[in-house]
Simulated assay, not measured.
Amino acid sequence: MGRFLVLAAIAGGGYMLYRKFINDAEALSARGEQKRAEQKNGATGTLVKDPVTGEYRVKKAD
């Protein structure tokens, strides 16, 4: 029974690390696509609308 719990903990930890890796890779890919799109059209940043004030501002890098 103890071996099963250790194996389950290792498998769960491995799955969590795998999901973290996939999420980070997707975020990196999206940032790269955004940069390529900005370079293609000569933009210096992406504008986003502030829902409270209604003003546009340059999107901050996360």
Rank of each mutant, 00 (worst) to 15 (best):
M1P: 08
M1I: 02
G2I: 10
R3C: 09
F4R: 10
F4S: 09
L5N: 10
V6G: 05
L7A: 05
A8Q: 07
A9W: 01
A9L: 04
I10K: 06
I10F: 06
A11N: 03
A11Q: 05
G12L: 01
G13H: 01
G13Y: 02
G14N: 03
M16V: 05
L17R: 01
L17I: 03
Y18M: 03
Y18D: 05
Y18A: 03
R19M: 13
K20G: 07
N23H: 04
D24R: 07
A25Y: 06
A25K: 05
A25H: 04
L28Q: 09
S29K: 07
A30V: 07
A30W: 01
A30H: 06
A30Q: 11
R31I: 12
G32L: 02
E33R: 00
E33P: 04
Q34I: 00
K35C: 12
K35H: 10
K35G: 08
R36I: 15
E38L: 13
E38R: 13
Q39F: 12
K40A: 13
K40V: 11
N41V: 10
G42L: 14
G42R: 03
A43L: 10
T44F: 00
T44K: 00
G45W: 02
G45C: 08
G45V: 08
G45N: 04
T46I: 05
T46W: 07
L47F: 11
L47R: 13
V48G: 12
V48T: 07
V48W: 10
K49P: 15
P51V: 04
V52W: 12
V52H: 11
V52P: 06
V52M: 11
T53R: 12
Y56V: 11
R57F: 12
R57S: 12
V58R: 10
V58F: 14
V58Y: 13
K59V: 08
K60L: 14
K60V: 14
A61E: 14
A61R: 01
A61G: 12
A61Q: 08
